[in-house]
Nucleic acid binder design. Structure first.
Length: 151
DNA sequence: GCCAACGTTGGC
DNA sequence: GCCAACGTTGGC
């Protein structure tokens, strides 16, 4: 079982939306490194930290569980979608998504500032590759975060 | 394959 | 809204 961190803008789709929907496709990822993780490495049962970016309090807002491994993101085929990609075809899809289920919403977001100042989290990929929206998390990082959050 | 120009992300 | 960092595109 592996651990991940998925970034999202809560104004578009945050932990609050996932809590209401219960299960949702994690779609719209349009970066090759992140795509490769979704396509090849994210598996059913993996745990996902949901990170809120570009908002008032940026940081980790909750946890989700993967319920369906990588499959072609349907939005790439839809000309009406913001995520439409004219170069993608059904036979050669370019972008992938996974399905996630809501697991937990923290009573307070664990702020980026805390992550930055916690020694045990100083090697997080989140901090090293600031623009990567799907990144691996180690078991010890995940456990450290569970100790820091407010339930 | 290099690299300049350009576009996007995301913290502040 | 600014801007640094980084990813992508396209000419050569």
């Amino acid at each position: 079982m592996n651990y991940w961190l998925f970034k999202t803008e809560p104004d578009v789709f945050g932990i609050e939306h996932l809590r209401k929907d219960k299960v949702a496709p994690w779609d719209g990822v349009r970066n090759y490194t992140a795509r490769n993780f979704l396509r090849d490495d994210v598996k059913v049962g993996d745990e996902v930290l949901i990170y809120h970016s570009s908002c008032k309090i940026t940081g980790i807002a909750g946890i989700a569980t993967v319920t369906k491994a990588g499959y072609p993101d349907p939005a790439q085929f839809n000309p009406e979608s913001d995520y439409y990609d004219p170069k993608a075809t059904q036979d050669t899809p370019r972008w992938f998504c996974v399905d996630v289920a809501f697991k937990e919403q923290f009573s307070a977001v664990l702020p980026l500032k805390t992550i930055k100042t916690t020694e045990a989290l100083s090697e997080m990929v989140l901090l090293k590759q600031s623009r990567l929206s799907v990144s691996p998390v180690t078991k010890s990082e995940f456990q450290t975060i569970l100790k820091l959050i407010t339930r």
